[in-house]
Design a protein around this nucleic acid. Structure first.
Lengths: 201, 201
DNA sequence: ACCCAGACTAAACGAACGTTCGATTAATGT
DNA sequence: ACATTAATCGAACGTTCGTTTAGTCTGGGT
C-alpha cells in the first residue's frame, strides 16, 4: 500500500494506465464484452477521460492494437517461437499488461493491425529459415514461403489456443518465464515432431 | 422466392431457425457483439420468443455450443484433419450455418463445452495414432499423449486462425469443399513438415 | 361448439452502453 | 497576481441491451 492514489496532472502516465487497463480487460473479456466504465474503473479515472484521450472506444482499441504490435515487432522471433524471451524484457512482460493474451485474442478476432503483423512475422520467418538452410541446419524445401507461413500459423495458433495448451500440456504460452516453454512438453514435442517427422521412414 | 414466410406454429422448425441464425451471427461477430434483437431479426421472429425458448441469451449460447458440439462429435477425425469430410455430410455443412466458423471462435473464446470437446478429440487422436504405429506407418514416440495433443492443437489452432490461413495460403479451412484442404498449400506443406521433419538429417 | 395449451407478439422495464457538455481543478507562462 | 491552458471530473444525454409481463392468435382434443 504505497502509491495507490495516482498522481494527478500527469498526462502520459494516465494515458498508459488507461491503456494497460484496457489491454488487460480486452484480453480477458474481449473488446465487445468490456465497457469503457469498467476500463475507467480499473484505471482509476473517469469514463469520459477515456473518450477525451482516445476519441472513441474503437480509438482505444486501435491504440491497444498499436501498443501490442509495437512490442511484438521488437520480439517477433521470440514470440513466434513462443518462448525464450530474454529475462530483461521478460520483466516488462510479467509486470505490465498481458500483451500476449491480448495478441492471442486479436489473432482470432481479426483486429485491423494483426494481419499486417502476422505477415511481417511470416516474412521474417522466411529469412530465418533461409539462413538455417544456408548453414545446413534446416532441410531445404520447394516452397519456402508456404513452410514459413505454416510454421507461423502453428505457433500463433497454439498461442491463440493457449487455454487448451495449458490444460492439455501444462504450459502457459502467454506467461513464459525464462524460456520454460521450450523445455516444456510443448517445446519438446514440437522439436520431436518437426525434427524427425511423424511418418516412419 | 418460394417459402420466404416461415410457417407459424411449428415449434421445432422455428427453434432451429433461431439456432441457425444465432450460430451464424455468433460466428461472425462473437457472442458479446451480437444482440438478441439481431438474432431475432435474422430468424424472422420476435426477440422475446428467443427468451421464451432458451430462457436467456446465455441459454441460447449453450444451445449453440451443444448443437455444434454434436456435429463435431460425429466428425471428430475429419474436423481435426481439417478436410476430407465426405460429400454427403458436406452438403449439410455448406447449406446450414457456419458450424466450423462457430467452432473456431468457440475454441479461442473458451466456451464451456469446447474444452471437453477438445479433450475428446485428443483422446481419439491418441488411439488413431496408436493404430498407425501398430501398422508401422507412424513413428513410435515416448510421449503418445503429448504428440496427439500437439497435433490437435496445431490443427485446431489453424482452424481458429482460419482468416490468416486463407490470406497466407489461400485455403478456407471453414469452407472445405470435397477435401480441397488436403491438396492445398496447407495440406501439402503439413504433409512435408510432418513427413520429413524440418531439420537436416 | 368449446376450450385450452402453446406458439407467438406488443410494449415496456431497468440497467448498461458509448458519448457529450459544462464545470472544476491544478500547473504554467508572464 | 493574473490569465491561459490542459487535465480531470460530474452529470446527464439518447440508445441499445437482456428480460419481463401481458396479451393475441391458432390448431387439436373433447
Amino acid at each position: 500500500m504505497s502509491d495507490e492514489s495516482p498522481p494527478r496532472g500527469d498526462k502520459s502516465a494516465t494515458k498508459s494506465r488507461i491503456l494497460a487497463a484496457a489491454i488487460t480487460l480486452f484480453a480477458d473479456q474481449g473488446v465487445a464484452g468490456t465497457g469503457v466504465r469498467a476500463i475507467a474503473a480499473a484505471a482509476d479515472v473517469h469514463p469520459s477521460l477515456i473518450i477525451h484521450y482516445f476519441g472513441t472506444k474503437d480509438g482505444l482499441r486501435v491504440a491497444c492494437d498499436k501498443h501490442v504490435a509495437a512490442f511484438v515487432r521488437e520480439h517477433k522471433q521470440q514470440v513466434m517461437r513462443a518462448g525464450r524471451i530474454d529475462p530483461a524484457e521478460l520483466r516488462d512482460l510479467s509486470d505490465g499488461p498481458p500483451l500476449l493474451r491480448y495478441l492471442a485474442r486479436a489473432l482470432a478476432d481479426g483486429s485491423p493491425h494483426t494481419a499486417a503483423l502476422v505477415d511481417e512475422m511470416v516474412k521474417d520467418a522466411v529469412d530465418y529459415l533461409a539462413e538455417g538452410v544456408a548453414s545446413g541446419l534446416i532441410r531445404p524445401t520447394d516452397y519456402p514461403y508456404e513452410r514459413a507461413a505454416l510454421l507461423a500459423i502453428w505457433s500463433l495458433g497454439a498461442l491463440a489456443l493457449h487455454e487448451h495448451v495449458q490444460r492439455l500440456l501444462g504450459v502457459d504460452l502467454t506467461n513464459l518465464d525464462g524460456g520454460a516453454a521450450v523445455e516444456s512438453a510443448y517445446g519438446q514435442m514440437a522439436s520431436e515432431l518437426l525434427g524427425k517427422g511423424i511418418f516412419r521412414t
